[in-house]
Computed example of a mutant assay.
Amino acid sequence: MSGTEKSKAHAEQFKGKAKEAAGRMVGNERMTTEGRADQARGNARHAKEDIKDAFRQ
Rank of each mutant, 00 (worst) to 15 (best):
D53G: 11
A40H: 07
H10I: 15
Q13W: 03
E29L: 08
D53A: 14
M25G: 13
Q57L: 02
Q39M: 09
H46F: 12
Q57G: 03
R41S: 14
G16C: 03
H46D: 15
G42T: 01
R56P: 00
A9W: 06
N28W: 06
E49A: 07
A9Y: 06
G42I: 03
R24P: 05
K8G: 06
K8R: 13
M25C: 08
M25E: 14
G3T: 14
S7W: 09
H46V: 00
D38S: 07
F14Y: 02
A11M: 07
G27Q: 09
K19E: 15
G27H: 08
F14H: 07
K52R: 07
Q39K: 04
G35R: 01
K52I: 00
E12P: 12
K8C: 11
V26W: 06
A18Y: 04
Q39E: 15
G35L: 02
D50I: 02
E34S: 11
N28S: 11
A40N: 05
K15D: 13
R56T: 06
A18I: 11
K52W: 02
S2Q: 10
D53M: 08
A47R: 13
A21E: 12
Q57W: 01
T32A: 10
T33N: 00
F55R: 03
R30G: 00
F14S: 15
K48L: 05
A21V: 00
M1E: 14
E5C: 12
R56E: 13
V26F: 12
